[in-house]
Simulated scan of single mutants.
Amino acid sequence: MKGFHLPHAVQDFVYTVLGILFCSFALKSFLIPNQFFDGGVTGISLLIHELYELNIAYVIVLANIPLIIMGAFQVNRTFAIKTLAAVIGLGLCLQFIHYPQITSDKLLVSIFGGVFMGIGVGLAIRGGCALDGIEVLALYTGKRISFTISEIILGINIVIFLIAAIDLGLPTALYSILTYYTASRTINFVIEGLEEYTGVTIISGQSQMIKEKLVMELGRGITVYKGERGFLKESFDISQPVDIVFTVVTRLEVRRLRNMVEEVDEKAFVFTSTIKEAAGGVLKRRARH
């Protein structure tokens, strides 16, 4: 079948199943027994479950279905089908698998409930689907109003936590905010991993030697911009041409790159920036997601 790769399909399946198991574990062993919440559609589902005592397995599936349908148009049908299967799988785990309550300590619940939830959602994203459709809603809404996706998600979550504070008490809402923060940071770590890409720009009078070291010793691809350096306060009219070197490395390689540049030119101007996505070129191979 054109475009179908069995190893990738198996990898996606494993990531998704592990994501479902981690999410259901976080919900049944940490959050639900202690009346804690998360953000997004999961948070809405937990809130409905607590306020109206409805079965969480049914609520979490039904709450995601409108967003899955929306995802078929906003993303693609493959994503929507995968997400529907994952959400139904999550509902089945919540309904039929018995998870013991791990702890009732509020701090442990808020931190580790968020960690396990973040691992689950992050693994599902690596598998090409979503266990929480809030970003699809934000993407749809963002095309119609002048707010960023992050601002829309933040606004929705503020409403969730305000309702939780009014109906279930401020301490519960505050602990739930900690859960959401922990989960969001864990999701970023699971998706990006230790090999989060970093863009590095180097401006130096010894650019030729730096270029050779980056390519020959570090094995990185480089891009060279033609620029000018100088323009100091005491000699503004004096400048000289310079090669501005740009490369992309993993954050584990940043320290080595800095040391390499300092060996050549201690006065070199080096600055870095985080890169969310990178593909093609001479990049270190990383996990597919």
Rank of each mutant, 00 (worst) to 15 (best):
Y99P: 09
A9S: 10
F13V: 06
F236E: 11
G114A: 06
N76Q: 12
F25N: 01
D132H: 12
L6R: 04
H5D: 14
I88Y: 11
R258D: 14
A80Q: 03
I20N: 05
S110C: 13
Q206F: 09
I125L: 15
S29L: 06
L174C: 14
A279G: 04
Y58C: 03
C129D: 02
T274Y: 12
I56M: 10
R220I: 02
S29Q: 00
F79E: 02
S176E: 06
N55T: 04
S235I: 09
L168I: 02
H289R: 13
I149N: 05
I158C: 10
R220P: 07
I166Q: 03
R286I: 14
F189C: 01
I88V: 15
I65F: 12
R126E: 10
K226S: 14
S176Q: 04
I158S: 06
I222H: 01
M117I: 04
I111E: 09
C93R: 05
E192T: 00
L90S: 11
I187N: 01
E50S: 07
V249S: 05
E50I: 00
A124V: 01
I134M: 15
E53C: 02
V215Q: 12
R251K: 15
A173S: 12
I191D: 02
L47A: 07
Y58T: 00
I222M: 10
K106G: 14
V261I: 13
S273C: 06
V224C: 08
V190H: 10
A9R: 00
Y180C: 03
G205W: 11
L21H: 03
F37C: 10
I56P: 04
F231C: 06
E262F: 12
S207D: 05
G120A: 02
I44D: 00
Y140D: 03
T16I: 14
I238C: 10
I160C: 02
T16E: 06
R185H: 13
F37R: 01
G281L: 09
Q11D: 05
N55L: 08
R285Y: 10
I210E: 02
F13K: 03
E277A: 06
V17L: 14
D237F: 14
G155P: 01
H98Y: 12
I244N: 04
Q95H: 15
K82S: 08
L214Q: 04
Q74D: 03
I102S: 02
T141Q: 07
V245D: 07
Y58F: 15
L252H: 05
L62A: 15
R126F: 06
G114V: 00
L47W: 00
A130P: 02
P100F: 03
M1A: 11
D38C: 12
G281F: 08
L252Y: 10
E263G: 14
L21I: 10
E151P: 08
L67S: 11
E234A: 13
A278T: 10
I202D: 03
